[in-house]
């Protein structure tokens, strides 16, 4: 198939970027979206032009590195997948595809389609851990009984891969879904409850410092999340934060 691509090109963080048009022929429907970009880059390199820089790593939907806004939606038109899992069969011959980087003040563009998502790392560092001493002694995993419902919810929250699609989708560039998933994954387990109050306050403080927007409960993040992280996590974080702050 033949595609008309409109891609954001930006030399570096300080330069002003612009959309650039490319026509790409010979794209097969079995190619992944990133393979389509690889083909484009091979063409560009052959022509002596600068290839389009984009983030990618595992290419199997588990690392959270790929991050493309495709036709106005994070990770493209399909649900519950990352851009690397998107295949060209989701498009038609002659389609125009607009490809942009995540847009948020807290995710500045480094080059072309690559953004700096270290804001997420700093939120995680502010409290997304448990302080326990570990040793070589194996302890029975079932020594502390945990309700199945809590274990499931915690696991589901932990499936967040930190790709940033929630921020990209949100009209306010809010990081509440990410932060709440990281808060919830610990808050639901006894090991995480020791530092629960401190954790939620520190992570929310860091989230605010990074310059993300406020949550207006549109639910766009939940729809676009490749891992289906639920809005219930945001309600849990709101509850945890309120209770932690009121208790002082």
């Amino acid at each position: 198939m033949k595609l008309y691509l409109k891609i954001w090109r930006q030399k570096d963080a300080k330069s002003k970027g612009a959309m650039v048009d490319y026509t790409l022929d010979g794209v097969e429907e079995d190619m992944s979206f990133l393979e389509m970009l690889d083909i484009l880059n091979e063409d560009l390199i052959a022509k002596g032009e600068e290839p389009v820089e984009f983030d990618h790593d595992c290419r199997e939907g588990i690392c959270g590195t790929c991050s493309l806004m495709i036709n106005g939606r994070p990770h493209g038109p399909d649900s519950l997948i990352t851009a690397c899992q998107l295949h060209m069969r989701s498009f038609n011959d002659g389609d125009e595809i607009v490809i942009e980087p995540w847009r948020a003040k807290a995710f500045p563009v480094i080059k072309d389609l690559i953004t700096d998502r270290s804001a997420f790392d700093r939120i995680q560092q502010a409290g997304g851990y448990i302080s326990v001493n570990t040793s070589g002694r194996p302890v029975d995993a079932n020594a502390i009984p945990i309700e199945k419902e809590h274990a499931d919810d915690s696991f589901n929250a932990a499936t967040c891969i930190g790709c940033g699609a929630c921020v990209a989708a949100c009209k306010n560039a809010s990081a509440m879904l990410f932060t709440s998933a990281k808060v919830s994954q610990f808050a639901l387990l006894p090991q995480g409850q020791v530092e629960a109050a401190e954790r939620v306050q520190n992570m929310v403080r860091q989230m605010d410092l990074e310059g993300f927007g406020n949550c207006t409960n549109t639910g766009a993040c939940e729809v676009e999340c490749p891992k289906g992280i639920s809005l219930e996590n945001i309600a849990r974080m709101n509850r945890e934060y309120l209770s932690a702050t009121l208790k002082g």
Binding site: K6, K105, K171, G213, T216, G219, A220, V223, E224
Partner: peptide, 23 residues
């Protein structure tokens, strides 16, 4: 604050695909 949080807007943003108009 929310407008400031996205200082550079998208060329194409399909908000209708994932959230209702009222929200």
């Amino acid at each position: 604050q929310n407008r400031k949080a996205r200082d550079v807007g998208y060329v194409k943003y399909n908000g209708a695909a994932n959230a209702p108009w009222a929200s």
